[in-house]
Design a protein around this nucleic acid. Sequence first.
DNA 1: CATCCGTGGTA
DNA 2: TTACCAAGGAT
Length: 348
Amino acid sequence: MRVDTEPARRLLAWYDRHARALPWRSPPGAPPPDPYRVWLSEIMLQQTTVAAVKPYFRHFMARWPTVEALAAADDAELMSAWAGLGYYARARNLLACARAVAAQGGFPDSESALLKLPGIGAYTAAAVAAIAFGRRAVVIDANVERVVARLFALADPLPAARPALRALVDRVTPASRAGDFAQAMMDLGATICTPRSPACILCPLESLCAGKAAPAAYPVKAAKRPRPHRRGTAWWIERDGHVLLVRRPGRGLLGGMRALPSSEWSDSPDETPPCPAAWAAAGTVSHIFTHFALTLTVRAATVSADCEPPLEGEWWPVDTITEAGLPTLFAKAAATALQKEWHDRTTL
DNA sequence: CATCCGTGGTA
DNA sequence: TTACCAAGGAT
């Protein structure tokens, strides 16, 4: 396979001048940073913006400074700490991975061994191997896909063209400084070779780029399905200044997270309340998930102080509801229930 | 390979 | 307002 050295040469020269200061990053050319920091930041950054990750990363590093500390974390506290960041399987896998790594005595330093760990896929294994351990690895995220698809004017649509694209990335990945090269590609994609209106005039690869005449045309992507709409009901059950929260099943949507009791979410959900009460309409919440839109009706009732919970859960103090670690959908539902003057306060 | 899985920012 | 997009992984 032919190796193109010129893109990497230019890109690394650009990176040495323009590397962005991120909290988990070592300066270009510096010794590799702590694998734990690299791994944690890479997991948080999956499909998530740097701005959203920053406060979570700082909190996690302060609360659990080492992988051993994270391995010993309380599950409920960790899930609460992740609340609001999304893709909660990442948090479940984060704990499983930390415990596996701690049991092994530390992170493995090869891409193939990293790939075996829970929550670490092709991208993260390559990124950690390259950035934290200085290994040559072919790192491909959405930025790299876009930069390379433009650089070679890749006409075939993704995701079917992934193997061809991987061969192209392999071709331009240097033998040394693979970690800096990967971060440089991602920085270039984030700041110059952007999805819309890229700043080709500032790009160090401009004169090499086969797609520069029509950069926005790349990467070609297959059409995506329209997003269906679902609806459902959540119940705010209040008793003596506390609200009933449940824990969602460990898999699936919002898996493992605290939540308000709710119906199924579908085209025509069964919205029978969990218990008889004087239910009041507290409002509705609209929320967009990746693959469907949800309109959630919030119904509220107050039950008597000696009332047994109608389903398995915990009574959470209403005045500290923001600390319950609710995912955004249920945080919005709680805010709705607390705003509305629904309280007829009839008892069960 | 297709589908499922959150959330917030941007044009 | 709608639609697209983001340092992807599991099944």
